[in-house]
């Protein structure tokens, strides 16, 4: 099988900065909003390339998000970026009351989502942001799998009038999509066909799921891989079809097993097409600071763990027939 993962690795945050700079040069209404993390989130690309469109709000996330709402109320399109942990937990009331509920055109960038946040540990990792944002009415939740998709999603978000949350990653990931890729809002992306089992993944776990699928194919297991770039609204039809086609599902996300993609998929399956399923995600644990590979192993979200869960899920499938 030919690998779907390129050897080239690019950081989502680099493409985020470049794309936002481009949007700010093209559109009168685009502004970059920073909470003093510009050189981490890479929103500093706008500070350097189009300084009049860069607004520093200091280390005060609650004010930052309410100011963004006020800016949007005057017809601007603010793009506020900070770490996903702070956006989803420090400023969520402001986001709900003043951005989501009134459906204001604010784009929220959760940089440094998941576990791999540059050895910063529990306070800077974000394992709850999907669960939190997904529970807000009017909210769109996006999680790109690679840097190409980041750019395409941002083009979409710029045209879409309303609140959008995008969860990005810090470190470089393999390129999955080529330049022809077109992001389709609310639609699953079928990356690989297979007949025994389907892995449904999102964000950074998509490349780990593809790596797991390669290993499983070598073991003679036919695995379908579906990437869910839009977590809300969710492509229910694709999930039901996957359940019909392979009869068993494994979900994979760099997020808590509570409330994230796994929960969202389980909700659909239970109501529409109950089949056995297992989740790969961080269990009911507090995390810590450590090297990436050590974290992936200890918190059981590496591609090796996806392989393991797929095999367990197949046992469930066979015992339920």
């Amino acid at each position: 099988m030919k690998s779907l993962l390129s050897k080239d690795q690019v950081s989502m945050r680099d493409v985020f900065g470049e794309t936002l700079l481009k949007l700010s040069l093209e559109s009168d209404k685009v502004y970059a909003i920073d909470g003093d993390l510009a050189n981490s989130t890479k929103i500093d690309a706008v500070a350097k390339g189009n300084p009049s469109r860069f607004l520093q709000m200091g280390i005060a996330e609650q004010n930052m998000m309410s100011v963004a709402a006020g800016l949007a109320a005057t017809g601007l399109q603010p793009w506020a970026a900070t770490f996903a942990a702070f956006l989803s937990k420090r400023a969520i009331d402001q986001i709900q009351v003043q951005i989501a509920q009134p459906k204001l055109d604010v784009k929220m960038i959760g940089a440094y989502s998941g576990l791999l946040t540059g050895v910063t540990g529990k306070t800077h990792q974000s394992l709850e942001d999907i669960a939190i944002f997904r529970s807000l009415a009017n909210m769109v939740v996006l999680a790109p799998a690679d840097s190409t998709e980041v750019g395409r999603m941002m083009e979409f978000a710029h045209k879409y009038e309303g609140p959008v949350y995008m969860r990005l990653a810090r470190d470089p990931y393999p390129i999955i999509f080529n330049e022809d890729y077109h992001f389709e809002f609310g639609k699953a992306v079928h990356l690989k066909e297979g007949t025994d089992i389907t892995i449904i993944s999102t964000g950074t776990q998509t490349s780990r799921s593809l790596a797991a699928a390669e290993q499983l194919e070598a073991d003679g297991i036919s695995v379908a891989v579906i990437h869910m770039p839009t977590i809300k609204p969710l492509d229910k039809e694709a999930i039901v079809k996957a359940a019909e086609n392979t009869g068993v599902i494994v979900t994979a996300e760099e997020h808590s097993i509570y409330g994230g993609l796994g929960s969202a998929v389980a909700e659909v399956l239970v109501e529409e097409k109950p089949v056995p399923m297992l989740r790969v995600g961080v269990k009911d644990l507090n995390s810590e600071s450590a090297k990436n590979d050590d974290l992936l192993e200890k918190y059981e979200i590496s591609s090796g763990h996806i392989v393991k869960r797929v095999k367990e899920a197949l046992t469930k499938k066979n015992s339920s027939i």
């Binding site: 309410s66 709402a69 800016l71 005057t74 601007l76």
Partner: peptide, 26 residues
């Protein structure tokens, strides 16, 4: 002009509006 009710938020939104006016020369 703004949804409020959770305290402390309205003043920040007003700051955003005033800033929006300045940025757009309104």
């Amino acid at each position: 002009d703004m949804s409020t009710g959770s305290l402390g938020q309205g003043i920040s939104a007003a700051v955003g509006m005033a800033l929006g006016a300045k940025l757009q020369n309104k």
